[in-house]
Design a protein around this nucleic acid. Structure first.
Lengths: 150, 150, 150, 150
DNA sequence: TTTT
DNA sequence: TTTT
């Protein structure tokens, strides 16, 4: 046992959040986050490397993402790696990896769509149910998701 | 052995950097960084808690800090905890803790004092001395990334 | 605001935990953790550098620390920097920095004092009340501590 | 821009390292690391969830992995997410995600195969290539800053 | 004061 | 496939 599985990202959204409202008040948001690093290669030329991450947020966080995030938003994200495995049509083992977000913080200036009372720049974590509108959804969300068969 | 000593901060500078140019081309910058967390107390009132961190940067990073950072700048910082211990006048053991910065990244929008070639939004790490040693590299390096289409 | 204040440590305890049982079922444990890094200096000599960290754990985690940790235990720790400030007898401003532990994991082999059902190697976090004996204390603990006058 | 892409793992190897010696003195090691988390579900039953990570190490680190790591080894790992994308035979876009290891630390007790001078418990980072190939190079690395007078 |  |  004794496991630690932690991911920390700072990057920008490549698109607006995709949010699905599921039965039972559950909400899931999928985000595409780009983290770019720049360095000089052996020839001294500047090289830029962008990694795209698939983020998954649930319930309270998903609602906040839906309300405040959009393409270009700069985020600090903390989460864990979580992969789905399955067999495709040809019977091949397939695996898809995503980042299950545990908390995130909007960075930079006030977003365009944020009203006066907006939580711009605040931190939203699954452990702080007070941050979100429906406390019950918060406590249910993350655990159920862990019951999936993989 | 087997030690890990890692600090990750996102916050804002409480003052302009204090930079000292020492003999032998060494430079040290001291920054005051505030990290604020907000939560609701038992009465449901919003409470805000600010922790102030003393950051220390050396040489190339110190020069970049001197050039581009100022009061209010938002930073991502990675470093390690490092404490000084000494005896004061009364012979009491004293200890002062600071964060030795290993890399930092400027967050948020383009700073006021950044010219056209400013490295706003770039990452500066001790492991990439090329970023810091030559002024031209600084202004060239991470700058272009702002042109990404999101 | 947009704050992140995160500390990650792997090290060994320099002494057995110091545990205080306070009124109202509150428990606090103080640990001394050493993180050691080794490197070679310019002369090629191996140099060892040890940083000592003051850790503070509350309630459920404090009880687990009391029960399972001892001098020499190897730990993974996640927490945040938290400093107390006050004025000493001479009216000087003083500051003391510690690590408020949010979760920890025992590393390495089974400890001597662990029985068959011991949670050795498990992870103990404030967010997983199931880990500790009195659920009520868990939810109260961390928030109250933030109400302290500093 | 302003990217951060950081992964921190503590887990155990599911198999011995797979090491390939490539042309030009390059070496790559692939590891399978399990991170396990345990929690109680709604019924109060203990549930265990294991995530398997594909780690990739190069050159000096790969050699150390080959020499000292084996099935069951407990590791602290720091790295970044790195994905390969390609098209399969059917022309479908495919993606595979792995962890590019930047540094790792062996945890726990002395391994069976470690001799007297073994680096058990030490830290091995990419920034200190010297750690592995040429002992003398160690003195040159990025650690010199610790010689500064503070 | 830990650990190797 | 690890670990407890």
């Amino acid at each position: 046992m004794a496991g630690v599985n932690k991911v920390i990202l700072v990057g920008n959204l490549g698109a607006d959040p995709e949010v699905k409202h599921l039965e039972g008040d559950k909400v899931v948001a999928n985000l595409r986050l780009a983290t770019t690093e720049a360095y000089k290669d052996k020839m001294g030329n500047r090289v830029e490397n962008t990694e795209w991450h698939d983020l998954e947020l649930w319930d309270g966080q998903a609602k906040i993402a839906e309300q405040y995030l959009k393409k270009g938003s700069q985020l600090f994200v903390e989460g864990k790696i979580k992969s789905d495995t399955w067999q495709d049509d040809q019977g091949n083992n397939r695996k898809r990896t995503k980042i299950r977000v545990l908390s995130f913080t909007m960075l930079g200036g006030r977003p365009d769509n944020a009203g006066g009372g907006a939580p711009q720049g605040g931190g939203y974590s699954q452990q702080q149910p007070s941050n979100v509108s429906t406390p019950s959804a918060v406590s249910e969300g993350p655990q159920e998701e862990d019951d999936l068969p993989f």
